[in-house]
Amino acid sequence: MNVCYMNKKRDPHCPISNYSYYAQLIRSSCPEILKNCSYNNEVFNCCEYFQTIETDVGICYIINSIQTKNSKPYPMLSNMKQKSGVLKFQVLLTSMMYTLGEDEIPSVTTLYSSTLKLSLGKKYRRHVTVRNIENDPLVAETTPQQRACRFHDENEDGLYPHYSYSACNVLCRKRAQMELCQCIDHFMLDTTESERCNISGMWCLHSHSKDLTTLKPHWAKRPGLSCNCLPSCNETEITILKDVITTLKPKKYITYVEMVLAYLPTERFKRNVVRSRLDLVVSVGGTAGLFVGASLLSFVELIFFFTVRFISNVLMEKRKQ
Score class of each variant (00 low, 15 high):
residue 194 S to V: 01
residue 84 S to P: 02
residue 34 L to N: 01
residue 101 G to H: 02
residue 72 K to Y: 14
residue 126 R to E: 03
residue 302 L to P: 01
residue 22 Y to N: 07
residue 46 C to M: 08
residue 282 V to C: 08
residue 268 R to F: 05
residue 63 I to M: 10
residue 228 N to L: 11
residue 20 S to N: 11
residue 228 N to G: 09
residue 229 C to L: 12
residue 239 T to K: 09
residue 272 N to E: 15
residue 223 P to D: 11
residue 33 I to V: 14
residue 14 C to N: 08
residue 26 I to P: 00
residue 279 D to M: 10
residue 296 L to M: 11
residue 127 H to T: 08
residue 192 T to E: 07
residue 64 N to S: 13
residue 147 R to A: 06
residue 13 H to Q: 05
residue 289 G to H: 12
residue 276 S to L: 03
residue 46 C to D: 06
residue 36 N to D: 13
residue 189 L to E: 03
residue 283 S to N: 15
residue 63 I to L: 12
residue 143 T to F: 10
residue 140 A to H: 05
residue 307 T to I: 14
residue 8 K to N: 13
residue 166 S to F: 00
residue 126 R to V: 13
residue 144 P to H: 09
residue 264 L to E: 06
residue 166 S to G: 10
residue 13 H to T: 07
residue 109 T to P: 00
residue 189 L to C: 03
residue 34 L to F: 09
residue 101 G to I: 02
residue 293 G to Q: 12
residue 118 L to D: 04
residue 164 S to V: 00
residue 42 E to G: 01
residue 92 L to Q: 10
residue 44 F to W: 12
residue 158 G to I: 05
residue 108 V to R: 06
residue 81 K to C: 13
residue 199 I to W: 08
residue 245 I to H: 02
residue 213 T to V: 07
residue 158 G to K: 05
residue 160 Y to Q: 01
residue 109 T to R: 01
residue 79 N to K: 07
residue 3 V to S: 15
residue 94 T to D: 11
residue 236 T to Q: 06
residue 190 D to F: 10
residue 173 R to G: 01
residue 91 V to I: 15
residue 16 I to H: 02
residue 22 Y to S: 09
residue 107 S to V: 12
residue 151 F to K: 04
residue 208 H to Q: 14
residue 40 N to S: 08
residue 268 R to Q: 14
residue 309 R to N: 11
residue 272 N to T: 10
residue 113 S to G: 00
residue 11 D to Y: 13
residue 127 H to S: 12
residue 45 N to E: 13
residue 271 R to T: 02
residue 308 V to N: 03
residue 208 H to S: 14
residue 1 M to S: 15
residue 5 Y to Q: 15
residue 269 F to N: 12
residue 37 C to L: 11
residue 119 S to L: 11
residue 27 R to D: 14
residue 215 L to Q: 10
residue 239 T to H: 06
residue 194 S to K: 06
residue 39 Y to P: 02
residue 193 E to F: 04
residue 294 A to L: 15
residue 9 K to V: 15
residue 237 E to I: 14
residue 16 I to A: 08
residue 318 K to P: 00
residue 223 P to N: 10
residue 1 M to L: 14
residue 123 K to T: 13
residue 68 T to C: 09
residue 105 I to Y: 04
residue 200 S to N: 14
residue 258 E to K: 04
residue 101 G to Y: 00
residue 56 D to R: 10
residue 7 N to P: 03
residue 230 L to M: 14
residue 74 Y to V: 11
residue 180 L to A: 12
residue 79 N to L: 07
residue 85 G to C: 05
residue 269 F to V: 06
residue 268 R to H: 07
residue 98 Y to K: 01
residue 14 C to W: 09
residue 242 K to F: 08
residue 119 S to I: 05
residue 51 Q to F: 00
residue 177 Q to Y: 06
residue 281 V to I: 15
residue 8 K to F: 10
residue 50 F to L: 04
residue 175 R to G: 07
residue 299 F to Q: 12
residue 303 I to V: 15
residue 201 G to V: 07
residue 46 C to P: 06
residue 165 Y to L: 02
residue 159 L to N: 04
residue 68 T to M: 08
residue 221 K to P: 05
residue 278 L to R: 15
residue 132 N to H: 09
residue 213 T to G: 07
